[in-house]
Design a protein around this nucleic acid. Structure first.
Length: 280
DNA sequence: CTCAGTGTTCAGTG
DNA sequence: TCACTGAACACTGA
């Protein structure tokens, strides 16, 4: 689920519910897997009685900025999400740290629950325990975040800059697109979608790209990200023409898109869906 | 029962 | 040291 548009959607939920308000209750899962870098009580005490001044994001990483440091950082992994709880939802404490079922009957792990002095409540959940929460004073003090490229929603690079960084690479473009130090926020589906719409083979090497190929890729990538963000990362609303709707259509996905064969290969360590008749 | 998965990290290779 | 690849992580659903 969570690539840049999904994480931006989560960021906006947190911004709407939390910014300007004081946190009156914070519950963090007592889960050493989730909190590899920080004991639960430290995260809770970093949050309680603090006012949220901003919610930041670069790529797939996001964080709560508070009126005193440290701040609280998080990554959704492969199956994390954040939702606002309505007034009728049962109390966070009653969930405890155990897995619980969401309104659709799916099992989730509760990672974090927050309540503000205005009564707003949000929870961060994860179906697979690959999401993470930790403390840090500011984004650039975090090793992983400090290595990210500028964010591709808010600060997209121009084609010439990208071209200079890929023109000698021997890796396939699919792998290059997944490199967060160059394409912060791009994940498996966005990479495939951008390559498909730019009509570039995922196994084309960086050094086989021209400047105009790079321009086409960047133009499509930026538009796809912007459109997905504008749609609140609600994939059902994505344009019908997008490969997204076909890549995992059924159990293995559809065989055809517009009458053309969809091929699936391992490229850059990930299953890659592409259309040989379109991508060269 | 086995395997892949909208991600990141780290060991291993050349 | 750099560039790159593949497995591990943890759990669910097909």
């Amino acid at each position: 689920m969570p690539e840049l548009p999904e994480v931006e959607t989560v960021r906006r939920i947190l911004e709407r519910v939390l910014v300007g308000n004081k946190i009156v209750r914070a519950e963090i899962a007592d889960d050493e897997i989730v909190l590899k870098r920080t004991p639960k009580v430290q995260v809770e005490s970093a949050l309680v009685h603090k006012t949220v001044t901003n919610v930041g994001r670069i790529g797939k990483y996001f964080w709560l900025e508070l009126d005193s440091q440290p701040w609280v950082f998080a990554h959704l992994g492969m199956a994390g999400w954040v939702r606002e709880l309505g007034a009728s939802t049962i109390r966070l404490r009653e969930h405890g740290n155990a897995p619980f079922e969401d309104e659709n009957g799916n099992t989730r792990f509760l990672k974090m629950g927050l309540e503000t002095d205005q009564g707003g409540r949000v929870v961060m959940t994860d179906g697979r325990r690959l999401a993470r929460i930790w403390l840090c004073n500011q984004p650039m003090d975090d090793l992983a975040i400090s290595k990210l490229s500028p964010d591709w929603l808010t600060n997209p690079m121009d084609a010439a800059t990208v071209y200079a960084r890929i023109a000698k690479k021997a890796a396939p473009m699919k792998a290059i697109l997944l490199d967060q130090s160059l394409f912060a926020g791009v994940g498996n589906w966005i990479a495939d979608e951008a390559l498909y719409q730019a009509r570039i083979r995922p196994n084309r090497l960086g050094k086989e790209m021209s400047l105009s190929d790079t321009e086409a890729l960047i133009d499509n990538l930026v538009r796809i990200i912007q459109e997905a963000v504008d749609l609140g990362a609600d994939s059902e609303k994505f344009p019908k023409s997008w490969l997204f709707h076909y890549r995992w259509g059924g159990s293995k996905g559809d065989e055809l898109i517009g009458g053309r064969e969809i091929q699936r290969d391992q490229i850059g360590g990930r299953t890659t869906a592409w259309v040989p008749a379109v991508q060269v």
